[in-house]
Design a protein around this nucleic acid. Structure first.
Lengths: 337, 337
DNA sequence: CGTCGGTGGGAAATCGATCTCTGGCAGGTG
DNA sequence: CACCTGCCAGAGATCGATTTCCCACCGACG
């Protein structure tokens, strides 16, 4: 026996003076083992620093004890970082706590074949898929996988109800944004919306309008952008053309808000004195821009954590009905309103 | 046999009319199998859509076929996103291509025990550890792990030579920054350095000074910040106090450069007309700030990829000598110089 | 006092791939 | 013609945990 040889269940069983079978049952916490014996086994295990061999367990039980975390590869490092990184963090923490291995798989939109092959090769028991705009097609391809899948994000309202997903309450976020502007006394407001047809963007706009309606305020012009800074800038320019007297602006993303801030400044408008601006996502740029941006925060980390919990639930009870969870958004107040 | 039962090696062997052993050898590509037979086996495998059972292989061979990717949990979602996300992406791509599972483990600085337990429990064969400032202590704790570890980043110059690491050429980056300022005709330059004692920051400053020396230019004032925007702002203020006629500024991070830009603008200096500014890291803020920032780019993705390759090398040949790889930085030119 | 329900625990099969050991066969040599 | 060397492929052991099957033993009841 080399000094680095790890103890096996047999070693534990011997040390405790029982059979392998009993040792296994004791460590699994099965009730059919005498309490005193179980105690002896657990002590022996702790004594030997025994760790159960994952491979052996996986082989025997047919489950691998790992869950895939699928994220769009291009987003992880760029601007989308937090949108992907934070859910990953949340999911990882949950899985880790239940000693399930989170296996990171990055989705390359140009070639999904390897990803699909991996997911169907029995390497993982289930998957948490972080959807971003570009990875939207994924939910179609992954929907009928022979393993449990939970999606973070719901890019299309029409997404199959049979799919389990967790998403931010974008609608509620839109309402929060509207309320912030309204409570600041703004009544001539405009919307720089995200791309239409993309459910989260549409939901934000819808929430915004509904809240305005509840206050009997006219929704003003709505211009669509692509979430980027430059699209926000041109949208803002278009808004100013349509209504030069605008005093409140809701942007569907922080980057678009940033573009708008530039245009407003160039046009001689002061923020927040002349125009109030609310962004969405509460990212770094909201903190670092000038003035710092009031923004709607998405519970990104919780999204991932909740998705991981759901996936573990499904693994425990495969019959569970698909769910569609919405987590609340909150408003982070800074100086732009 | 249920319809979902996956084919085993035995099924493949039967279909090819050989024994399990031969099938195994054929699929492993061992030369001791007749070419025609090997071909038959491979065809049968493809035909049945056979995938080798990871658990069984792991159990038998003693290796798990997975490598841990350790990243500081707090950085993944915040500003540090790209610094962590990009190496992760690079490493994942490499591992995936060699069908090694990248297991994502996040390091919680408050409690490292679970991480260490996981790494020593035989769940993974090796680890790639992304070091950031706060996870610096990790390299001490992980250095003598009984498995191969490759670090991305080298927070201390005095880091044990027995540890394998991959890092950006921060020194070269400093030289690039200096050259950019010098070639723009700047001669009264100042440095907003990162925290002293943190090797990457010190290296950047050293490279900067050496390049200046090569041009016979006096290095000017050096003020230390903490990489944050606000620290950059106060450092810039201090620089202006010390030398109001400064015409070139090298900041050890984009965020500090951003803080400096604000202070310069507030002080009535135009960038780049009056003062040229070079940042470091080439992050989103370098793109989005006003004016867009010339910045030194770190090859973050390559860092991770290279680390993954090194770790696979060590797994293949455990006797390999520890290495200390430096990857070149490049200059991204925008409008601030 | 004998038998029966019930409970705790041991022996052994099992999961699937790998690897050692060994035998068979062909070609070459004395 | 006998024997040896190589090469190729099959039989079976092995990795370690789980789980089924079954036996032994206990108290209780007829």
């Amino acid at each position: 026996m080399s000094p680095t040889a790890r103890p096996t269940l047999l070693d534990v069983a011997r040390a405790a003076g029982v059979s392998r079978a009993t040792a296994s049952r004791a460590l699994a916490g099965l009730p059919s083992v005498d309490a005193a014996l179980a105690r002896r086994v657990r002590d022996a295990a702790a004594d030997l620093d025994y760790r159960t061999n994952t491979a052996a367990r996986a082989l025997r039980s047919g489950a691998t004890g790992s869950v895939a975390l699928v994220a769009p590869s291009s987003e992880l490092e760029g601007q989308g970082g937090p949108f992907v990184g934070a859910p990953l963090r949340g999911a990882t923490a949950v899985l880790f706590a239940r000693s399930v291995q989170p296996v990171l798989l990055l989705d390359d939109a140009r070639d999904r074949a390897p990803l699909l092959r991996h997911l169907t090769s029995g390497h993982v028991d289930a998957a948490v898929v972080v959807l971003q705009r570009e990875s939207e097609p994924l939910f179609t391809e992954l929907g009928d996988l022979p393993l449990p899948v939970v999606f973070v994000g719901r890019p299309r309202a029409a997404m199959d109800d049979a799919l389990t997903s967790v998403d931010s309450d974008n609608y509620g976020g839109g309402r929060l944004a509207a309320r912030a502007l309204l409570e600041a006394g703004r009544r001539r407001v405009a919307t720089i919306a995200g791309p239409s047809g993309y459910a989260p963007a549409d939901e934000r706009t819808r929430g915004f309008r509904d809240e305005l309606a509840a206050w009997d305020v006219h929704p003003g012009p709505v211009v669509h952008g692509s979430f980027s800074m430059s699209s926000g800038a041109s949208a803002a320019a278009s808004v100013l053309r349509r209504d030069p007297a605008v005093d409140g602006l809701f942007a569907g993303s922080d980057l678009m808000a940033l573009g708008a801030l530039r245009v407003l400044a160039a046009g001689g408008r002061r923020v927040p004195e002349d125009v109030s601006v609310v962004g969405f996502d509460d990212t770094v740029v909201a903190e670092t821009c000038d003035p710092p941006l009031t923004s709607v925060r998405q519970p990104l980390r919780e999204l991932g954590a909740r998705a991981a919990e759901l996936v573990l639930d499904v693994l425990r009870d495969p019959g569970a009905a698909p769910q569609h969870v919405l987590l609340p958004t909150t408003l982070t107040t800074r100086e732009s309103v």
